[in-house]
Amino acid sequence: MGELQVEKHVKYILAVEKRKDNFESVVMEHLRLNGAYWGLTTLDILGKLDAVDQDEVISWVMQCQHEDGGFGGNIGHDPHMLYTLSAIQVLALFDKLHVLDVDKVSSYIAGLQNEDGSFPGDMWGEVDTRFSYIAICSLALLRQLNKIDVGKAVKYIVSCKNVDGGFGCTPGAESHAGQIFCCVGALAITGSLHHVDKDLLGWWLCERQVKSGGLNGRPEKLPDVCYSWWVLSSLIMIDRVHWIDKEKLAKFILDCQDTEKGGISDRPDDAVDVFHTYFGVAGLSLLEYSGLKPIDPAYALPVSVVNKVILPCRP
């Protein structure tokens, strides 16, 4: 098993951040703010966040904000919850949440809550538990959870629970590891994990590990590095992570590295991207791989960042 190629991954991420002309970055243009979050969080876990120009990033992030308080995926793109959370997370990484008009951003998010407690992604009404997570995570980071009806938000998430213990994007929708992370994460942040049947869900999640050691996102699907995050973080939040073989998973992730040019892919020998590089490194952090900063399984930010933002008594 190879080692984690820290230097190469750092170089890879810095290069992607800069490139704006190739096909890949054009296709990804609309979610550049997500990309920034993935890249920067990875750098922070690797202990290399200082390699980027903070001021440049923050000024660009703030240009993605709209009058209503929400953020678009890039300058000129419509506001959406997906990018609003990324903006908040990026600012938290730099300990710069104070540059935000907290009231405005939190009002944008809180204003989207539906009568039944659910959240749409934006004004166009696509309801999904992903957005419940985003609303709860964002508002918790801004210390504004009291702006929404948390009870109703939790009730809606619970209504998306399935008989296999997992969660779907709307009531009746199939369980999926990504969706499970969102729901379990939202329940964790709101102190509502008692709604999770930990043994049932834990078994479903630990059975995501396939022979190669990698994790898939649903039964009878292929393994993929991004599930190292979705499945692993969920297992950690419900204290069942010991039910998988952690060493084998670490090996699978390391096998997905591009040891020449840096970056991590979905499966061994596939093309790398920032998304999977982040999930691979974050997964290794959750596996307590040596030399990496620990990441928080619910807020998806380094533990040190979360503790600083959420715990009282800043020194």
């Binding site: 964790a188 419900i238 307590e288 928080d296 619910a298 959420i310």
Partner: peptide, 16 residues
């Protein structure tokens, strides 16, 4: 351990 699997099962400001 660097990762605490009981972090969210314990009352704290982290889980409100």
């Amino acid at each position: 351990h660097s990762i605490d699997t009981r972090r969210y099962l314990c009352s704290s400001p982290l889980n409100h």
